[in-house]
Write a protein that binds this DNA or RNA. Structure first.
Length: 303
DNA sequence: AAGACGAAAGTGGTTGA
DNA sequence: TCAACAACTTTCGTCTT
């Protein structure tokens, strides 16, 4: 399920992004689905506030393949000065210290630079998703830990950043689906999931599976459902977890199904399709879960 | 015609030998 | 490392409103 976006006009899944006009467009009927696309174009990174002002979204980068922009000075290991004369013995110890420090500075520079890039990535993602500051901070912390333990090597920084954000959302009790993060980060869902598992294992992040409850208010908002439905849904979830109908099941499926039931009971019915869309699960899953729930909880549904 | 239903085959991840 | 397995998805034909 790579692309879950459907055109609301014709239902087609052939959707493409027009970055120049910042629009998401249906290939079939031309309907403009989203005109608030995040700029994913080149972004020349800034590493301190001065550079940020000068360089953001302007012209070509200086060389960005060489980490110090090719401007750094190296101190040669030969014991000669710039005229080729050999350096007196009493200065050599000093030269040695200079070289050593320069080396150290460049290393930590590279690390800081990596972090700066990753953090700006994190900023872009979290603001694109309208996430609160605390989540962003948590994500930054996770990423920093990962960088310190050398876990980023072999993975792209974007991929690791996206995974850190996913983990942070869950830790902060505002879980987002992998699909949601995949959409704003242009990293495939699979990759984010894989990276996330890796980070969780290596960093020993204590991850409890997200509770269906945490999704409800957001889904209700997206579906334009009232607070009554929200309360009802939470009630159903409470019952369900008391009777151990929740564990082992995907929380998204449970959330979607109980929402479906609650909406019907409150006379604010939504179709399975609508709910499936916002919850990022299929109608089939909703059906299976809600069959289970209505049966085990003795809820009668009048269709 | 749209929504709901359910069977059957497929997918990716976990587990245990 | 591999096969079995559970949960979930995809697809598709059928029934209901």
């Amino acid at each position: 399920m790579e692309e879950i976006v459907r055109c609301p006009e014709c239902g087609s899944t052939r959707i493409s992004n027009d970055y120049v006009r910042a629009e998401t467009i249906c290939d079939v009927c031309g309907f403009v689905i989203d005109d608030n696309l995040i700029d994913q174009g080149p972004e020349w990174r800034a590493f301190d506030s001065e550079q940020r002002e000068k360089r953001e979204r302007t012209g070509l980068p200086m060389t960005y393949t060489i980490h110090d922009k090719g401007l750094s000075t190296t101190i040669s290991w030969a014991n000669r000065d710039s005229y080729g004369r050999s350096i007196p013995t009493r200065s050599r110890a000093q030269m040695y210290r200079l070289r050593k420090w320069q080396h150290r500075i460049r290393i930590s520079d590279a690390m800081e630079r990596n972090l700066a890039i990753a953090l700006s990535n994190l900023d872009r993602l979290s603001s694109g998703m309208g996430l609160p500051r605390t989540v962003r901070e948590t994500a930054a912390m996770i990423y920093r830990k990962a960088a310190l333990k050398n876990l980023v090597r072999g993975r792209t920084m974007e991929g690791t950043a996206a995974a850190a954000l996913y983990a942070a959302c869950r830790q902060c009790g505002v879980p987002r689906t992998l699909d949601e993060i995949a959409t704003v980060s242009r990293i495939p869902r699979k990759t984010i999931g894989r990276n996330h598992r890796y980070l969780a294992r290596e960093l020993g992040l204590k991850m409890t599976p997200p509770s269906p409850k945490e999704y409800i208010s957001r889904f209700c908002n997206k579906l334009g459902l009232s607070g009554d439905v929200q309360m009802k849904t939470l009630g159903i979830l409470k019952e369900a977890s008391d009777r151990e109908l929740v564990s082992g099941r995907g929380p998204l499926g449970i959330a979607a199904a109980s929402l479906y039931i609650a909406a019907i009971l409150c006379g604010e019915r939504r179709t399975q399709q609508e709910i499936a869309y916002v919850a990022g699960v299929t109608e089939v899953t909703i059906r299976n879960r809600y069959k289970e729930l209505t049966k085990k909880l003795d809820i009668d549904i009048i269709l």
